[in-house]
Design a binder for these strands. Sequence first.
DNA 1: TCAACTGAGTTCTATAATGCAACTAATTTG
DNA 2: CAAATTAGTTGCATTATAGAACTCAGTTGA
Lengths: 184, 184
Amino acid sequence: MVKKSFSDMACSVAQAMDVIGEWWSMLIVRDFFVGGGRRRFEQLRDSLGISRNILTERLRTLTEAGVIEKVPLQEGGRRYAYQLTDKGRDLLPVMIAIMQWWDRWEQEPEQRYMKVRVRETGEEIAPMSVQNSRGQPLGYQDLFMTVLTPRGEMKIREWPLDFRSLTEDDRLELPMEAAEQKAS
Amino acid sequence: MVKKSFSDMACSVAQAMDVIGEWWSMLIVRDFFVGGGRRRFEQLRDSLGISRNILTERLRTLTEAGVIEKVPLQEGGRRYAYQLTDKGRDLLPVMIAIMQWWDRWEQEPEQRYMKVRVRETGEEIAPMSVQNSRGQPLGYQDLFMTVLTPRGEMKIREWPLDFRSLTEDDRLELPMEAAEQKAS
DNA sequence: TCAACTGAGTTCTATAATGCAACTAATTTG
DNA sequence: CAAATTAGTTGCATTATAGAACTCAGTTGA
C-alpha cells in the first residue's frame, strides 16, 4: 500500500495535511490548547482514549514537524512533558476555524460543548473570516487564486472561486495544469 | 481494529475531524475550491492521483456530511458532477487558515505555490486571525475556554490559553474532567 | 529495605483501511 | 457498430490502527 505522502504535491494544504491531517493529530493539538499548551503522555492518553503506540507515533510526528517539543520535568528523571511550540500555538486559527465551521452547521446546536471567549470582556470571539487588509470580510466571489510558475505568478482562471459563473463547460479544464502549460 | 470514530466525543473539533480529518478529504475540498466549486470524478482522480475506490468512498462520506452534492449533467445520462454545497463552501476559512499556517512556517518559502488575492484590487488577503467583535486580533493570552455542563457554562481554568502562566504544577490537572466534577 | 505503583513507552496480534490493477456496465464518439 | 470514455466495483497485497500485555526505570510508602 505505501500510504501516500502528500509532501510531493506542490500545495500548502497537501503538505500541511501530512502533519495535521493524520487521524489523531488535530485532536492532540486541541487537547494541548485546552490544557494550556502543556500535556504529559498519560494525560493525553486518558483524555483522548488513544492507545499508547498510536500516541507515541503521533507525538513523534508532531515533534518532528516542530509543532510540539518534549521537555524533561526533572533532572535525570524519566518524566517528560510535551508542549506546543510557537509553530504549534500558531495553529489556533486553524482549530478555531474548524470548531466554528462545525458549530455553524451542526444539527443539534444545544450539544455545543466548548466556547472560546475574550478574557477581558467575556464576550464570544467573532466568527473567523477571510479579509482584505482593511479587515473587510471577503467571500469566494471576491477572490481569485494564482499559481507561481517559472514565468511568474499566473491567475488560475478568470474567476476561480466565483460560483455564480459556473457552467457545464467548466468541467473540461484542469485549472492548475492548464496554467502551467500556458506558462511554459 | 474498528477504526475509532470521534463523533461520540463532545467536541466540535472531534466531530469535524470525522468528516474533514480523513486522509483525502481536505485535499478533495481544496481541489473543489481551485476548480471553482464543481468537479467530476475523473477530474478529481487525475488531479489528485487518488485511486478510484478511495475517491468513491471519500465522495460518499463528504456527500453524506453535506459538504458536496452529486448532480447529473444530462437527462437520463450517466455523467455526474460533484459540487460544493453552502456548507462545503463555508470551509474556505478552514482551508485558508491551513494554507497560511503552512506558508508561515515553511522552511523554503520560495516553494510557495498558490496565493489567494482580492479580485477587485489584486492585493493578497490578510492573514487570518482570531478577533473580538470589533475586529481586533486576539492571541491565546487574550482568550479563555468554557464548557457547557448541566449547571451552565463553566470556565475550564483560570487562564486556559495563557501560556505565560504555565508552571510545572499544571501537569496534574485534567481540566475538562475537573470542571465537570466541580459542576456536579 | 523492599514491594508496589507510576510513567512512558515497546511488542504482539487481530482487524480495518489503503493502493493498485483489473473488471463492469452504460453512454458517447468515430 | 466498434472503440473510447465515464464512473464506478471487485480482488488482492500491503500498511495502519486499536487494544492488550509486557518492559523497565524511577518513586512511594510501610
